[in-house]
Simulated scan of single mutants.
Amino acid sequence: MAVVVTLEGTAPSVTQTANQTLIQITDVDSNGNTGTSSYSQTALVVNTNDVSTAISNANTQLSQFRTHIDEKAAMDIDTSAAEAKYNDAQSKISTAQALPSTSYTDALNNINTAISTISDGETLLDKAWAEKEISDAQGPVNNVDALIAYFQGNSSTASDARLSEVITKREVAVSYISAANDALTNGNFAQARSKAEDAYTKGNESYNDALTFKAAVEATWNPFAGLGSIGSGIGSSVILIVVGIIIVVLVVVGIIIYRKRSRWDELG
């Protein structure tokens, strides 16, 4: 025997969108005992106000994301990946806004996708920031490497204790960069930036020490080097004057020798 039942009703009102049990059927015998057979039907009951609220919240998050992108772009950070996520999220929100009120489920799905995309974009922006800090920290290390090579190629400075101090600080900076890269790989972008800042500071210390060392070495070659740019100019001028005097002397000696030989030829 089969029983066909048609039910009609009004979906219950809800304060927020949620799954609701619309019908539940349980087998009960004549004695009121519940059987093992049962059937229930649930459905998502939507509060249409949730859609407009969700769209408003998504637009707020999108606006904040736009501000973060612009801030990082001003810091010369690569925001291309974040920009792509921004455009995707903006498209999803626009689609949700354009849907009719009866398509609230599709609208909410688009909004949820947009919010997830914004979150992914913020993560990519944070990563790009950390990568920029690490790249900046490498600059002073590269600068000091050039000076270290200069010192090591000079026999008078290759074993100098001051060079050892420069190299020690340089190695500390490199270790910080390595730690920053490890943190970046592990997704700990805040720590990556912190280590990169430490590397930048220590790298600059090493570079400044190297410049001081170089100035001291050059002072032994040019007694006027301690006067800075003026001293360098004086030193260069002195060298030019000395070279000029030598050239004049050679010319005079040459003329004298030439004249003597000419007289010998005449007396010949």
Rank of each mutant, 00 (worst) to 15 (best):
E8R: 12
N142H: 10
Q138K: 10
E133G: 01
N208F: 04
I23H: 07
Y200K: 15
N31I: 00
A54G: 09
S30E: 11
F151I: 02
S135V: 03
S194W: 01
E71K: 08
S13C: 01
K260Y: 09
W221I: 13
S164Y: 04
G226P: 03
K132N: 10
I134D: 02
V242G: 07
L44A: 10
T17H: 02
Q64T: 10
N112G: 14
S91F: 09
V4T: 15
A225F: 08
N142A: 12
A183F: 01
R66M: 10
K92L: 14
R263E: 13
N154M: 06
K92F: 14
T102E: 13
S159L: 03
A2L: 15
G233N: 11
R170T: 04
N109D: 15
R259Y: 07
I93R: 10
G121T: 03
D126A: 01
S56R: 15
I239G: 13
R193T: 01
N186K: 10
V242M: 14
T34H: 15
Q41N: 02
T113R: 04
I134V: 05
V174P: 00
V243W: 04
G244F: 06
Q41H: 04
Q191T: 09
L108F: 08
A161D: 12
M1A: 14
I256D: 12
E205T: 02
Q191E: 12
A2F: 13
S262V: 08
Q152I: 00
T185D: 14
S80E: 10
I257H: 11
